[in-house]
Design a protein around this nucleic acid. Structure first.
Lengths: 131, 131
DNA sequence: GTTCGTGCAAACGGTTTGCAACAAT
DNA sequence: ATTGTTGCAAACCGTTTGCACGAAC
């Protein structure tokens, strides 16, 4: 349950936070703050943008979300906090997750004088018409 | 020469554009617009931020620069427009280029239903003390 | 003289913050 | 009582734009 997930992360599950969590932690669409606001605002018309921003920041600090900088105009949020890659559809702007095992990245360890703690592949292109 | 590079790209080489070009096209530091402004402003105190932003936009359209979205707070610019990867130093925030051939990325073609037109690896970590 | 480039100031848009009211412990 | 949370409005900051002046063709 979402409430337990918040409590486990050390977050008090208020009504606003639950509404935000239910949308953003279950989304695969990598929403931005204003998209979260719009979605939550429908069911919770009194919520403010400040609460949305505060909550997204809190969720990020508590490792329930990761910020992505794949769009040039706004930060988007990813509830998939495990290692994975990203595909950016250049036609629609949509971001799709690519599972970690689908791509091999080799010779990272050979980079001299760099301790690589993390990495990801960012792909750009378009979805193919599936036959 | 820088002026010829601008002309070749179809850009009239004004004094302001030359000053900006000399700084940003030769930089390996991935500067942001305000860093470009500060640097150029020293030698060219009458320049405006509008001109810097307009010029960086123009250079980007003319393929002399690429915008990078590796920092969470601002756009940075890369005069290296050939394929390469990026290493983000998590201590200093500095961005370093990784030459294309230093890393192998495999099985991109196997991704079903995706036409990958471009990709890059983004690495995060710290520089090792070299012995 | 018409197009292009510059610089100032204002506007814009995403995000953060100050603060007063309120809820939870 | 004290601490944490919300929502409003204002502030903030990187970036863009409107516009008038001037330069280049």
């Amino acid at each position: 349950m979402i409430a337990e997930q918040l409590i486990t992360a050390g977050i008090r599950p208020t009504a606003q936070r639950l509404a935000i969590a239910e949308f953003v932690l279950r989304s695969t669409a990598h929403p931005s703050a204003d998209e979260v606001f719009d979605a939550v605002n429908e069911k919770f018309p009194t919520i403010s943008t400040a609460t949305v921003y505060n909550t997204l920041k809190l969720f990020t600090e508590k490792q329930l979300l990761k910020q992505l900088h794949l769009r040039d105009d706004r930060i988007i949020y990813d509830p998939n906090v495990t290692r994975h890659h990203h595909f950016v559809d250049v036609e629609t702007g949509e971001i799709h997750d690519i599972e970690w095992g689908a791509i091999d990245v080799c010779r990272i360890q050979e980079l001299s004088n760099l301790d690589v703690e993390d990495y990801e592949v960012v792909l750009r292109g378009r979805r193919r018409e599936s036959e």
